[in-house]
Amino acid sequence: MEAIRLAVNGRTDIGRVREENEDCIRWHGDPEQPFSYIVIADGMGGYSGGATASRIAADTLDRQLALLPDGIFLSCSPDQQQLMLRATLIDAIDIANREILETKGTHPQFSQMGTTLVAGVIWGDFLIVAHIGDSRAYLWNNYGLQRLTRDHSVVQEMMDQGKITEQQAQESNIRNHITRALGVSEQVEPTINSWTLTESALLFLCSDGLTEYLDDHTIERVLATHRPALECVYRFIDDANQLGGRDNISAGIMEFSNTPGDFAETSPEAITRKPKKDDITVRKEQR
C-alpha cells in the first residue's frame, strides 16, 4: 500500500449555450489512505430539475463513499474491503434514486427530472466503476486507452445490433436518448465492474457534453501527452467549448501511481483538496 500514490482533480463547466449547469461533480482524495473517488452526474428534466437531480446523486455518493474508510473497513481483508466498496456503491445509488423520486413527488415542477451517473473509486490497487446512462469512464496506461463503460443509450443498442456504425452513432440526432437513468423508476440498474491495477494509470470520467465533441482517439492523445496530467480536465473542457460547447461539460481525472517518478509534475495540493464551489459552477470565461 505504501508505494501507491493517488491524485485527483475535477471540473464542470456550463458550456457556451446552456443557461444552467445541470452537471454535478464531486471528487475526493484521502490524505492518509490510498483511497480516492470521482462522481459525475448529468441531470435532465427542465429548468432547475436536472441540476437538482444531479446534485442529489453526486452529493449522496460523495457522502456515502467518504464514510467508508473507517476502523471496521480498515480491519477487513482485501477481499472483504472490495465487497464493502461494491455494496457501498449499490446502496448509495439506491438511496440517491429514492431521494430523487421523493423530491419529484413533493415538487411537481421537478416531475420530469432524472440524471445519469458515473462513479470511479480506487482503494489501493482496486478500481471499481459504476454507471447509469451515457456518462463515461476511461482508463489510460502505457498500453493505450480502454473505455470502461458501455453507454446505456439507444444508439449503443443499435451499434450492438450492428444497425449503425460508431460514426453514425456520433452523428445521430438521437445520440442523447438514454435507456437508463436515476430518478425514473423504483428499481435502478447500475452496471458495476472492477479491476486490479498493476501499473501506473490515469482514470478519466466525463459527461456526454465532452464526448459529443471528442472521440476516443482524441481523448487518448490528450491523456498520453498533456502534462501535468491532472490539468487535462481544463484542456478537455476548453477543447469541447471551442468546438461548440452546446452542453454542460464535466471532467474528472485520477492518477494512480505505483512507480516512483510517475506523474511527478502533479501539484501536491491536488492530491487531497476537496472541490471548492468555484470548481463546480463557474463559466469557462471565469476559470
Rank of each mutant, 00 (worst) to 15 (best):
V118C: 11
K276E: 07
L182V: 11
G124R: 01
R18M: 05
H28E: 00
N193C: 09
A229C: 12
L210A: 10
P228F: 14
E255D: 08
E20H: 15
L203P: 01
T115E: 02
I164M: 07
L214Q: 04
L210C: 11
T191V: 15
Y234T: 15
P69D: 00
T259W: 11
Q156I: 10
R246L: 07
L145N: 03
Q170A: 07
G15Q: 00
R273Y: 06
R150K: 13
P78W: 13
V282N: 10
I14S: 02
R283L: 06
G162P: 09
G183R: 14
T281L: 13
Q33A: 00
N241Q: 04
K276H: 10
K284R: 13
R273C: 05
D30K: 04
A51R: 06
R150I: 08
T225H: 12
D79Q: 11
A137F: 11
E102F: 11
A224Q: 00
R5E: 09
H226S: 09
L202E: 01
Q33G: 00
G114I: 06
R11A: 12
Q80K: 13
N141M: 07
I174L: 14
G245F: 08
I56M: 03
Q146G: 10
L101M: 01
T198C: 08
A240I: 01
A57C: 04
L68Q: 00
L74Y: 14
R150E: 02
Q286H: 13
G45H: 11
I271L: 12
S54C: 07
G10H: 05
T115W: 06
K284W: 15
D151S: 06
T196F: 15
T116P: 02
S77F: 07
G46H: 03
A58G: 00
E19I: 15
D134C: 10
N21C: 11
I40R: 01
N193P: 07
A51Y: 05
A66P: 02
T225K: 13
V39S: 08
E285V: 12
Q33K: 05
T211S: 05
G29H: 11
V188Y: 12
Q187D: 14
N141D: 15
E269H: 14
N258A: 03
M158S: 06
R16I: 00
D238I: 07
I38N: 04
H131F: 14
S250G: 00
D70V: 13
Q187H: 14
Q112I: 07
R246K: 15
G46A: 05
L61K: 06
K277P: 12
A87I: 09
M44L: 15
I95F: 13
C24F: 15
S153C: 03
F110L: 13
D238C: 10
R147G: 06
L68F: 07
W195H: 10
E189G: 05
H226R: 09
R273V: 05
G209M: 01
E199K: 09
V233S: 10
K274L: 08
E269K: 14
L61F: 03
L202Y: 07
N173Q: 12
F35G: 00
R283T: 09
K274H: 12
D30T: 11
G50I: 02
L65S: 02
W123Y: 09
